[in-house]
């Protein structure tokens, strides 16, 4: 049973140290923290973290993001004076946890959530029907589940964007935002998969899990953040499941 859901993007820049000394997009981080705080406050039995990855699988709940994969040397001086620069330092190998789940786990850590978590990745190429099915399976679980969905919109919003400018991106992202705002999650399950890929909208499989998990529920949504400051569409939302369904 899904009792609440939160939608957050998963750019690495959410993690403060990764941007160096500068504070980048504190308002985005705050919106995510508020969404996750509300999720945790719903007192779930389990928080299910869902995000895209190379494959569909459940990860060790203790796994955390490998920061060094994004920022080698972030832990401090890599070479102490006198070290032989030709000898590479020993580094911890990461768990291979997908970034989306790593960001989700980090947000839960920030919220001091100590309860049970389920880390579910969904393959980038997973067909819509499979994604929706995964969501339905989660919803069919007897436990009270809070869903933390990590999903990013298109990465082609302007010429400075990672994917350069694609004029279709704004319409694509607006439709996702509308679907979330109006609680019309069925619209997410029929997103054009090929278009999502072309627009580098990595959140597509995770949105569709969300659609499958809450397809028959009556929802109210709060959009906490919706913008594309670096040409990637970020959407933060809280999705509240009406009590009649949650208590069913």
């Amino acid at each position: 049973m899904i009792i609440a859901a939160a939608l957050c993007p998963s750019p690495p820049l959410l993690i403060p140290g990764l941007t160096g000394s500068a504070s980048v997009l504190p308002e985005l981080r705050l919106a995510c923290e508020q969404a996750v705080a509300e999720l945790v406050a719903a007192a779930p039995d389990i928080v299910a973290v869902v995000g895209s990855g190379d494959q569909t699988m459940i990860w060790d709940a203790a796994a955390r993001l490998d920061l060094a994969a994004f920022a080698p040397g972030i832990g401090g001086a890599v070479l102490a004076p006198g070290d032989d620069p030709q000898e590479p330092p020993a580094t911890d190998r990461g768990s291979g946890l997908p970034m989306s789940l790593g960001i989700g786990g980090w947000l839960l850590d920030q919220a001091r959530y100590g309860g049970e978590r389920l880390l579910q990745s969904v393959a980038h190429r997973e067909p819509a029907q499979r994604c929706v099915g995964l969501g339905a399976d989660l919803a069919a679980t007897p436990a009270k589940i809070a869903l933390l969905v990590l999903a990013d919109g298109s990465a082609c919003r302007n010429p400075k964007a990672p994917g350069y400018f694609d004029e279709r991106s704004a319409g694509f992202d607006h439709e996702v935002e509308r679907a979330v705002r109006e609680g019309d999650l069925g619209a997410l399950s029929v997103i054009d998969v090929a278009l999502a890929d072309e627009l580098m909208a990595t959140g597509r499989p995770a949105w569709q899990v969300l659609a499958g998990a809450l397809d028959d529920g009556r929802l109210t949504s709060e959009i906490r953040y919706c913008d594309d400051p670096f040409g990637v569409a970020y959407l933060v939302a809280s999705l509240r499941v009406e009590l009649s369904r949650a208590g069913r």
Partner: peptide, 13 residues
């Protein structure tokens, strides 16, 4: 002629 997007490496070197 593309830009890097969220690249990561277990060990870039």
């Amino acid at each position: 002629r593309t830009r890097p997007f969220r690249v990561s490496y277990p060990d870039v070197m």
